[in-house]
Design a protein around this nucleic acid. Structure first.
Lengths: 140, 140
DNA sequence: CATTTTGGTTTTGATTTACAACCAAATTAG
DNA sequence: CTAATTTGGTTGTAAATCAAAACCAAAATG
């Protein structure tokens, strides 16, 4: 590694963990409440060897926590850590982008919604410290 | 494809384009203002064959627009489309997560900032329609 | 006590990546 | 004007990764 503009960029570090299809599908599942190996496998369709690899990496990076359930290190549950839960913002940004720019035409949007009221969420937007919306040209 | 919980999920559609390391590095570069093939290649370190492939895909998906510059289809510039620019929110979410959960300890955060004032941006957060912050358990 | 489930590991072949070599047209340098 | 360099790729090729299936031991279930 060690590429040109690659050093000290938060995006590069991020992508070394999250620049992968299955990793995000696993994280999506974790937000849906999935915790067990078999459920991750069935719900995403990932191959078992890849799932084992991705879960290990996410546990190493402390995005997921591997908990013993049942007796003696044979059954496990994978839970989001606080760091993992903080990915919710990124996941929502993906949801919202996809609903607007992908699903826009034909399909009905599948949104995250508020659990109690069922109402939609506020739209994420880039804003300055005073809350004013910013465009791409306003950034450095 | 066509996996279990895979149909009609905005995240799956999103990941089929964006579930890739180099694709995001290219998008980051585009936000930094890079438009030319050679600059993308030098600034990210990606191999030329992969860069050509990724740029084609992003142009197909209308994330980037390929414009003729110079004469007769020999020199091009790749610009973000409105859809591409809308990825800014997702990119910022990645930046902010990475600064907080990755760079937190040792390194100084590398943030996007407001161009005119140099001030930091507001932190993205998941909120309900009235602007109240929500936790993971509040969602469906 | 027999069957099924769980959480993997280990093959194997197919696909993708990374790296280097090559190229023609266009631009720049002298 | 000519030579050297830049641009924007394409084409190999070896190495790494992925996908699918087979296999397995321990535990839970019937």
């Amino acid at each position: 590694m060690a590429k040109p503009r690659t050093k000290d960029c938060p995006i590069v570090g991020f992508l070394e963990v999250f620049g992968d299809y299955w990793t995000w599908l696993i994280i999506r599942e974790a937000f849906y409440g999935t915790t067990r190996f078999g459920d991750f496998q069935r719900n995403t369709g990932i191959a078992k060897n890849l799932l084992a690899d991705r879960l290990d990496r996410l546990v190493d990076r402390e995005i997921l926590e591997k908990r013993d359930v049942g007796r003696l290190g044979t059954r496990f549950a994978y839970h989001l850590t606080p760091s993992g839960e903080a990915l919710q913002t990124t996941l929502l940004a993906m949801y919202q982008w996809s609903n607007e720019h992908f699903y826009g035409a034909d399909k009905a949007p599948v949104e995250m919604r508020e659990l109690s009221s069922g109402k939609p969420l506020a739209h994420l937007a880039v804003r300055d410290a005073e809350g004013r919306p910013l465009t791409r040209r306003d950034l450095i």
